[in-house]
Every structure is written in C-alpha cells, then in structure tokens.
C-alpha cells in the first residue's frame, strides 16, 4: 500500500525536475504530471513522479495525520516507496 506522505519541494531544476526532501534525504523527481508547482510546495510522489500537488494547509493536515498514526519514523521513510 502506497502511503501518501507529502514531500516538500526544496529545489526546482530544469527539464521539469525538482528535488524533494524526504526525511532529510534529497531525491530528484519529475514534475511533468503536475502544474504550477512552486518552491516550498508539497507533492505526493510515486516512482520518481510527483503525483499530486497539495496546498500547504492540506499537507500540514496529512503530515499531522501520519504523526498521529505512527511514531513518524516509518511514515517519513515510507515515502521512498510511495
């Protein structure tokens, strides 16, 4: 089950690429499937693509939810597999 953990965009790169922060580790992903993503926005990632963009408010809610359900360690790490 792929968990929808929000990842923050920390750098925009040429060619529709971006760096996201996943529990302190940077990963390059493609932004080809989402529109109007800005630095600092949150996205949900699946196999190298940002699937959806989240409003900061929505992202905060989801992050709080993951924090509530787990101790946070698995939920953040799971994003690599999400």
């Amino acid at each position: 089950m792929c968990l929808a953990l929000p990842c923050r965009i920390v750098e925009l790169r040429p060619g529709d690429q971006a760096l996201v922060d996943v529990a302190g580790v940077s990963r390059e992903i493609s932004l080809a499937l989402v529109d109007d993503v800005a630095l600092g926005d949150y996205v949900i990632v699946h196999v190298g693509y940002a699937l959806t963009r989240l409003d900061p408010e929505e992202a905060e809610k989801t992050l709080a939810l993951f924090a509530e359900l787990g101790d946070g360690s698995w939920s953040e790490a799971d994003v690599a597999g999400a």
Partner: peptide, 25 residues
C-alpha cells in the same frame, strides 16, 4: 510495510472515512 490499518484501531469510525483517502497515494 507499516501496519497502517492497525494504527486506525480506537479511532472514531466516522473519522476513518476522512482519513483513508488521505493515507493512500
């Protein structure tokens, strides 16, 4: 894989309907 479903135990049933679509990507 984490046991997400197990973490839902004890929550009000109505809240689960709001949570589930947020949990899965």
């Amino acid at each position: 894989r984490p046991a997400v479903a197990r973490a839902l135990s004890g929550l009000p049933a109505a809240r689960v309907l709001e949570l589930i679509p947020r949990l899965f990507g």
